[in-house]
């Protein structure tokens, strides 16, 4: 019974959202607002239960770990974002958050730069490594703006543009695939779980 009701509600809200394809309408707006409200309503008690109780209430009030009060107060300063005069106080917890960046830099440099560079410096003994080598060099040349892009230099940097276009095309193709997949998911729900037409 519960399954049937939840399917009917979900199907109705799905159709409300799809109605936007025809034009903007109150059903769409209702479903959109409901999503935001329900998500927040769902998140607040979950965060309270899984963050506030185990990491603030329990340590301070039950285990007497009073040092926790300092980071808690630091976190509370975020609320001052909403005050015009005291919003500067919210910058202090942000400063501590930014400290994470310090840890991120060396590790990120390794994962995103050094390892990537190493794999572009392989022996040019097959077509893939040759293509990667040409791509890296020509794109780097395209992004070198201290020299005017004309003549031979311009032609080489144009190759870099072609490489980037292929990259953007692949990215866009994947995006189209993703959007269609989402539509398929909803239609599978409507035809399968709601109407039982897919087995």
């Amino acid at each position: 019974m519960f399954g049937t009701i939840s399917n009917i509600v979900a199907a109705f809200l799905t159709l409300c959202i799809f109605s936007f394809l025809y034009k903007d309408n109150p059903f769409y707006k209702f479903a959109e607002s409901l999503l935001v409200g329900v998500s927040m309503g769902y998140a607040i008690p979950l965060v309270y239960e899984n963050a506030f109780i185990p990491y603030v209430y329990r340590p301070i009030f039950l285990q007497n770990k009073f040092l926790i009060i300092i980071p808690t107060l630091m976190g509370v300063l975020y609320i001052f974002r909403f005050s015009k005069n005291l919003s500067w106080l919210s910058r202090y917890p942000i400063v501590f958050g930014m400290a994470i960046v310090g840890m991120f830099v060396p590790m990120s440099l390794n994962a995103r730069v050094l390892v990537q560079m190493r794999s572009t410096m392989l022996p040019l003994d097959n077509i893939n490594t040759i293509l990667i080598f040409i791509g890296v060099v020509t794109i780097l040349m395209y992004f070198f703006f201290s020299k005017e892009h004309k003549g031979t230099y311009g032609k080489i940097s144009n190759v870099g543009i072609w490489y980037m276009m292929v990259g953007f095309g692949a990215s866009f193709g994947y995006t189209v695939m993703a959007r269609i997949s989402l539509l398929i998911g909803r239609i599978q729900f409507l035809l399968g779980e709601c109407l039982g037409l897919i087995k």
Partner: peptide, 14 residues
């Protein structure tokens, strides 16, 4: 998701 796939290929390749 497919949207993220192209961005992650360099990590796969390395």
């Amino acid at each position: 998701t497919a949207v993220m796939a192209a961005e992650n290929y360099p990590f796969l390749q390395t």
